[in-house]
Computed example of a mutant assay.
Amino acid sequence: MLSHVFVGITDFERALAFYRPVLASLGIQERFCEAERPWAGWESTPGPRPLFVIARPFNGEVPHPGNGLMVAFMAATRSQVDAAHALALSLGGQCEGRPGLRPEYHANYYGAYFRDPDGNKLCVASHEQA
């Protein structure tokens, strides 16, 4: 269904220092990183798509996080959700919803919400039973 998700950032090195460890904690493999461009992308398993890409906006203007726009990453376990959320906050992310069950979505939905250093809203969610 999706080819890629592109998230605009202002400071490539800061964004890379945030996304590399957070996505690695979820087992998401980095596919490319070109600091001279600057952009980086991570691939799904079994790749190569969809991709998750961070970069400065093509038009050169400042990125603006959208209200209601959120990227959600899949976690294999609830403990992985907890760990990714804690790691994101330790790397400068802002909490938008502590890890926990959200039965209003479905009985096994366990998610956590946070914003990256540029204000982009992210989620980590597991849909598995405890």
Score class of each variant (00 low, 15 high):
L2D: 00
H4W: 07
F6W: 13
F6G: 13
I9F: 03
D11M: 06
D11N: 14
E13I: 11
L16D: 03
A17Q: 08
F18T: 04
Y19L: 02
Y19G: 03
R20H: 14
P21I: 04
V22Y: 02
V22T: 07
L23E: 09
L23K: 09
L23C: 07
S25T: 13
G27M: 03
G27K: 01
I28N: 06
I28D: 07
Q29S: 11
Q29H: 10
Q29C: 04
W39L: 13
W39M: 12
A40G: 08
A40N: 05
W42A: 02
E43G: 03
T45P: 02
G47T: 06
P48R: 10
P48T: 09
L51K: 07
V53K: 03
P57E: 00
F58D: 07
F58W: 10
N59R: 10
V62K: 14
H64T: 11
P65L: 00
N67S: 14
N67Q: 12
G68M: 13
G68L: 09
L69E: 13
M70A: 02
M70K: 12
V71N: 13
V71W: 06
F73R: 13
F73Q: 08
F73P: 10
M74I: 15
M74T: 15
A75N: 15
T77A: 03
R78W: 08
Q80N: 11
V81M: 07
A83P: 01
H85S: 06
A88L: 04
L89S: 03
S90R: 12
S90W: 09
L91F: 03
G92Y: 01
Q94N: 11
G97E: 02
G97F: 06
R98L: 11
G100Y: 02
L101K: 11
L101R: 12
L101I: 02
L101S: 04
P103E: 02
P103T: 00
Y105P: 10
H106K: 03
A107H: 14
N108Y: 11
G111T: 10
G111Q: 01
A112T: 11
F114C: 00
F114W: 02
R115P: 00
D116H: 07
D116E: 09
P117A: 08
D118K: 08
D118Q: 14
G119V: 11
K121T: 09
K121L: 15
L122P: 15
V124H: 09
A125N: 15
A125K: 10
Q129K: 15
